[in-house]
């Protein structure tokens, strides 16, 4: 086992453990903190694949911005077990379990039949994640999805502006 393999197993354990704790912890603030740990572990995986750019962007965007906003909202609402209304609808719980198991089944089936299981990742040798290669790929091969996603972001931004705009009250 090389140093990369040790790191891989460690990061994998950290990712999965963190993800489980996100669901399992009672306090939503702790859930978010575990989610941040999960993001860090995923960034570690990116670094192992020699994709530093993706790793750092993952940290900047997800851990640095989106999770801060999540934390912001959760802290502001002060959610905890006491303020939570009692969960009466038992069937929601069973529906969730069934949906989760089905998703797992689909994922396992899809991954099993795919050809990528032979060579899962290029450890430390791939250079797709480096910024210059990534830029070239994004602006040549994947330029259409890239632009589509930018339109999506634009519409989301406009939507946010429209929602947050003050209602103009006409005096009769």
């Amino acid at each position: 086992m090389g140093i990369a393999a040790i790191l891989f197993w460690f990061l994998s354990a950290l990712t999965i453990g963190g993800a489980i704790m996100v669901v399992a912890s009672k306090n939503p603030v702790y859930s978010i903190l575990y989610l941040i740990i999960t993001f860090f572990a995923i960034s570690g995986h990116y670094v192992l694949m020699n994709a530093q750019f993706l790793a750092i962007v993952n940290i900047i965007v997800y851990a640095g911005a989106i999770m801060v906003l999540f934390l912001f909202v959760v802290m502001l609402m002060n959610l905890n077990a006491e303020s939570e209304p009692p969960q009466k609808k038992r069937y929601l719980f069973f529906a969730g379990v069934v949906a989760g198991c089905s998703l797992m089944l689909v994922l396992v089936a899809a991954l099993k039949s795919s050809s990528s299981q032979i060579q899962l990742v290029q450890m430390g040798s791939g250079d797709v994640g480096l910024i210059s290669n990534l830029g070239k790929v994004l602006f040549t091969d994947y330029v259409f999805p890239f632009e589509i996603s930018s339109v999506l972001f634009l519409s989301a931004m406009i939507g946010a502006v429209v929602i947050s705009k003050k209602e103009v009250v006409h005096p009769e």
Partner: peptide, 16 residues
Amino acid sequence: NIGILYVFGVVSLGVY
């Protein structure tokens, strides 16, 4: 090779 982005990432974590 992404030095300045690293700085950016760490600074954005400072708020935690």
